[in-house]
Design a binder for these strands. Structure first.
Length: 189
DNA sequence: ACGCGGATGGCCT
DNA sequence: GGCCATCCGCGTA
């Protein structure tokens, strides 16, 4: 059984790179009227703020990026490529604009519900191994944008297993066209 | 096991 | 008007 202690705002009120590393092993959990789905975070990317050309904060606080500038521990959910959602955890102080993109999880709870939501998926290995895949599996969309992940909402990130630092694979972020060689992608093999 | 391109729409310039 | 922090299926090996 997963632990249900949500990570506190103080956890998120640090540099995105640190938070991205330490979110590995934590549990992302979503409750809907269909049931609960959750997974262990296995891949993250750090987006450092307005000085990071690949970070959405470069455009300033617009309608789309509004909650990226929210308080630490806020969920920043955005729509991309006309059909996909991605979820971030906001880091550092309110107004700064840095976050950690959740890129992969390993299902813990509600795997049958996840399969129903992603019926075309052939194997469980590809059920939640991408930022838009996991949002589809957990039914994360605009409704969750701006909610606090720190407890009390239908979306939260909870304490999980501790991941040894020497097992984390570090590499460049993917899918971006600027600041492409910064080593800000973290994953558990 | 790759590589490529289409789907699809909101938002910033 | 053009750009996306993507995914999937189809093509060539």
């Amino acid at each position: 059984m997963p632990r249900l202690n949500a990570l506190p705002a103080s956890f998120y009120n640090r540099d995105a790179e640190i938070v991205a590393r330490e979110l590995l092993g934590a549990e992302l959990r979503v409750r809907t009227n269909e049931g609960v789905t959750s997974g262990r975070i296995t891949e993250t990317e750090a987006y450092l703020g307005p000085h990071d050309a690949a970070c959405h904060a470069v455009a300033g606080r617009t309608k789309r990026t509004w909650h990226l500038f929210g308080p630490p521990g806020t969920a920043y959910v955005y729509f991309i490529y006309g059909m996909h959602w991605c979820v971030n955890a906001v880091t550092r102080e309110e107004g700064f604009g840095s976050a950690v993109l959740i890129r992969g999880i390993e299902p813990i709870e509600g795997i049958e519900l996840m399969r129903q939501r992603r019926p075309k998926t052939k194997t469980d290995a590809t059920l939640t191994d991408g930022p838009a895949k996991l949002c589809a599996a957990l039914a994360i969309d605009r409704r969750y944008d701006g909610l606090l992940l720190t407890g009390g909402c239908d979306i939260s990130i909870n304490e999980g297993s501790v991941v040894p630092a020497n097992t984390i694979v570090v590499g460049p972020r993917v899918g971006i066209s600027k600041a492409i060689d910064w080593p800000l992608r973290f994953r558990i093999p």
